[in-house]
């Protein structure tokens, strides 16, 4: 607390808060702005590199969809009957099917000329998997589920901030816990997405679906975002434990919940743009 005599008429003369926020919250905003610049540079690089390649032609995509339909009829339909009769071995069947998919299906498509190093693959040909639906062509469905999970966890976070503003310690705990669960669900989905892409043969330096830059940018940007989500979950857990111990109730305000909430919403915001660039464009 300052003991100096300060002229209150000067906005930037010190002794007052020009933005009417505490130092910590202002610095969180400044950090988020700088982090937004970092993510923007990655997305700008993605946009520029992606359009320096030709895209996979539409007719080939249609041919591929037919091929997928045949694949479903030939391979998946008997698989369903088999799986139904051996419910206990469902997971094993799934793993086998994934291995088969990676070993034979993609090379077959490469022979068809769908994936070449000169053409940027359409994302719906690459990320078309959904858990327990092996061999089906389901573009955008899984990633939409991930988006929904992250938006919902943003909602629970802001409800937690709201509860903090009313000084309701129990409600803060409840909403923070739900936010943490949402964060873990998202991380699990992302791990599944990476596993699929890696088991299809994608690496930082090579990509069975086309230009290596596609895989490098995908791992780089979603990895950077995933690490942000992970850090956010760790921060949320710290806040959750502090709140259980009554730290904020003793302090008289729940501003820490709000500050960490800002970071969590930012992570959601970045996902909106990662979704736009990697899956839609």
């Amino acid at each position: 607390m300052s003991t100096q005599t300060i002229s209150k008429s000067s906005t930037w003369g010190g002794g007052n808060s020009p933005f009417n926020v505490s130092y910590g919250k202002l610095m969180m905003w400044v950090f988020l702005l700088s982090d937004a610049f970092t993510f923007s540079s990655l997305l700008i690089a993605y946009g520029a590199i992606r359009y320096s390649y030709d895209s996979t032609p539409i007719e080939q995509i249609d041919a591929l969809e037919l091929k997928f339909a045949e694949n479903v009829q030939e391979k998946f339909a008997p698989d369903v009957a088999e799986t139904a009769s051996h419910a206990a071995t469902t997971l094993e069947h799934g793993a086998e099917h994934a291995a088969e998919h990676a070993e034979h299906f993609i090379p077959a498509l490469r022979e068809l000329g769908v994936f070449t190093e000169a053409q940027w693959p359409s994302p719906d040909l690459v990320f078309n998997h959904f858990p327990f639906a092996h061999g089906l062509h389901l573009p955008l469905i899984f990633v939409s589920l991930m988006t929904l999970i992250l938006i919902l966890s943003s909602v629970t976070m802001v409800l937690g901030v709201e509860a903090g503003q009313q000084g309701n310690q129990k409600a803060v705990s409840k909403w923070m816990l739900l936010t943490i669960i949402g964060g873990f669900m998202f991380l699990g989905c992302q791990a599944w997405e990476w596993t699929n892409f890696i088991s299809a043969g994608a690496r930082m330096w090579s990509n069975p679906y086309g230009p290596p830059a596609f895989a490098a940018l995908f791992f780089g940007v979603t990895g950077f975002h995933g690490f942000h989500v992970f850090s956010g979950v760790v921060l949320n857990i710290i806040i959750y434990i502090n709140n259980l111990k009554g730290t904020y109730a003793k302090r008289g305000h729940y501003e820490m919940v709000e500050k960490v909430g800002l970071y969590w919403h930012f992570v959601d915001l970045v996902w909106v743009f990662v979704f736009t660039f990697f899956y839609l464009i």
């Binding site: 020009p18 933005f19 905003w29 923007s40 359009y51």
Partner: peptide, 30 residues
């Protein structure tokens, strides 16, 4: 929040969004 805080955050990002469009379009000509 205070209006000035909003401007501080949103104005720089407006330029960045423009840059996103711009580089995507320019990539076509590389």
């Amino acid at each position: 929040e205070h209006k000035k805080l909003g401007y501080m955050i949103i104005l720089p990002m407006a330029f960045i969004i423009f840059f996103l469009f711009w580089m995507m379009y320019e990539g076509n000509f590389w």
